[in-house]
Amino acid sequence: MTPARSDDADATEFDALRPKLQRVAYRMLGSVADAEDILQEAFIRWMKADRGAVLEPEAFLRRVVTRLCLDQMKSARAQRETYIGPWLPEPVVEAEVEEDVTLPLMLALERLSPRERAAFLLHDVFGLGFEEVAKTVQRDPAACRQLAARARTHVREARPRYQVDKQRGIALAEAFFAASRSGDMQALGAMLADDIGIYADGGGKRAAALAPILGFDAVMKVQERLAALFREKGSTLLRAGFINGLPGFVTREADGELQTTALEIEDGKIVAIYVVRNPDKLRHLH
């Protein structure tokens, strides 16, 4: 006979697992809002589940969340095809760096099929065995090994080649903010790599370049124009921290909206600047 259930106890058990489940959902989808929706649906299914059939709550819920994400990714792919300008994941701002899945790696994951992405994340990032991965994505273990191997090949170049010291990373982000807002082009140029690129996500909701801006000279021209706007209209630093594993900062711009800037650093130079301006992707930061 199945023991009597307590809704409060079930909810408490779910809440204890929520941070782990959130990590899975966000890394699958690249959207904080969509991850929250997935967790809400998972909670409903958890409360309705037959406890006698649930031997390992964490494994059960991880499977539920992953499968819901796989379904969500089908519609998300169609939406990305019509997205205006570069697409960047919703920024997660942390005081400490999380190195398992950085922003460049999340962008690389976007090129994978949903099941490749799931197999790679569950095995390579979250450390699950292929037997458990197979149960989750509903493929046999050999197929899951192949999925993860293909994914690994695609994302290998996105793995960080240089470990940036945390304090050095934050110091560079703060120096970049100061130079870019004051218009100190000499100081700014000294921080940038020759193959620097800017990727700005406005989503058609706020002004942003519709294509990546690549190369030192092109980036410096853009920064000069932006510096003039910053000096005239202002840009307020709210906090520095790690944005999707990269050093960066959150600002309030002249239009009153938030903005995040994340810096990819290699060998002491900034090689990529990722700017999220789409207000839909910044709501959770308020």
Rank of each mutant, 00 (worst) to 15 (best):
S31Y: 05
K48I: 08
A33F: 02
L29T: 15
R23D: 09
Q40E: 14
M28P: 05
A49D: 05
L21N: 09
W46Y: 09
Y26L: 10
R45C: 06
R51I: 11
G30Q: 14
R27W: 07
W46T: 02
G30V: 07
A33P: 00
R51E: 05
D37R: 14
R23K: 14
R45E: 12
R27Q: 08
V24N: 09
S31T: 09
I38V: 15
D50M: 03
L21G: 05
L29N: 03
R23F: 03
A33Y: 01
A25N: 01
A49H: 02
V24G: 12
L17M: 14
W46V: 02
A42D: 06
V24H: 03
R45M: 14
D37V: 14
M47Q: 15
K20W: 08
L39Y: 09
A42I: 11
K20L: 12
R45K: 13
D50V: 02
R18F: 09
K20C: 03
F43M: 13
G30I: 08
Q22W: 03
M47A: 15
M28Y: 03
L29W: 00
P19W: 14
V24F: 08
I44E: 13
A33R: 11
K20S: 04
V32I: 14
W46R: 02
Y26A: 03
L21F: 11
Q40P: 00
I38R: 11
R18M: 05
K20I: 03
E41C: 07
R23H: 10
M28C: 11
A49E: 06
K48R: 13
D34K: 07
I38E: 12
R45Q: 15
Y26V: 10
A49Q: 01
R18L: 12
L17S: 05
V24C: 03
M28T: 04
A53G: 01
L39S: 10
E36W: 03
R23P: 00
I38F: 04
Q40G: 13
R23M: 06
S31E: 04
G52W: 10
S31L: 08
K48S: 12
R45S: 07
E36Y: 02
K48G: 01
L29E: 00
L39R: 13
A33N: 02
R18Q: 13
F43Q: 12
F43W: 13
K20E: 07
V24P: 00
M47C: 14
D37H: 13
A49R: 05
I38P: 00
S31H: 04
V24T: 13
R18A: 08
R45L: 15
Y26W: 12
G52L: 09
R51L: 10
Q40L: 13
G52R: 09
P19C: 11
L29H: 01
E36H: 08
K48H: 09
E41A: 14
A49M: 01
V24D: 07
D34P: 00
E41D: 15
G52F: 04
A49I: 02
Q22G: 00
Y26P: 00
V32P: 00
V32N: 04
L39K: 14
P19I: 11
R18Y: 12
A42R: 10
I44L: 15
A35C: 11
E36G: 08
